[in-house]
């Protein structure tokens, strides 16, 4: 599990480990099944060592004492930087998706602004790939590879359109 994702899920408010896991499961649906609970605790421990997360024992009348995890100011900074960074050319759909979810939940950034930023980057690459494709003679080997790049970029751009629609509607419903 990427550390930044765990951090971002804490941006809205501190949470118990299991609540954190529930937040991720809600955002990822069946894709979240691959995560195991242990992973999250290992990541939290690392983050705490790095000074990005601080924990507190919550007193409880029944059952064992549980830790509540929250962001330190360094952690908050890291989340802000992660939201602003564009992750292409290694697109990680889940990471980008969680970025939008976390940004909206914590009110840290406008999901639509993140979508716009990503779109700009993808369109620049599409422009380059297309220019390279147009410069190739028809049916050259290189043209075929470039066509593959163009089609992938188009697929990503279509998904961004879906993200835009979805987050526009949600914002309207707030």
């Amino acid at each position: 599990m990427q550390q930044e994702v765990v951090l971002a899920m804490l941006a809205k408010e501190p949470a118990y480990g299991y609540a954190l896991r529930a937040r991720l499961s809600a955002a990822l649906g069946p894709l979240g099944d691959a995560m195991n609970a242990g992973q999250i605790y290992v990541t939290l421990t690392r983050l705490e060592k790095a000074g990005l997360v601080a924990s507190e024992e919550a007193t409880s009348t029944e059952g064992p004492a549980r830790k509540v995890y929250g962001l330190t100011s360094a952690g908050q900074e890291r989340v802000g930087a992660w939201l602003a960074e564009v992750s292409w050319p290694r697109p990680d759909l889940a990471e980008f998706h969680l970025k939008l979810v976390a940004a909206a939940a914590a009110g840290l950034a406008d999901p639509l602004a993140i979508v716009d930023q990503q779109r700009r980057e993808l369109l620049r690459r599409l422009r380059d790939a297309q220019r390279a494709a147009m410069a190739e003679p028809d049916r050259s080997d290189a043209a075929l590879l470039l066509e593959g790049i163009v089609l992938r970029l188009q697929a990503d751009l279509r998904w961004l359109e879906a993200c835009e629609r979805n987050w526009t509607e949600r914002r309207g419903n707030l």
Binding site: D116, L123, R127, D128, I149
Partner: peptide, 19 residues
């Protein structure tokens, strides 16, 4: 108009990573 971007002069050299 909500956003404006200059696309020219972008990313040459990074296409390899996309493939």
């Amino acid at each position: 108009f909500v956003d404006e971007t200059r696309l020219a002069g972008g990313t040459s050299g990074k296409l390899g990573a996309l493939a």
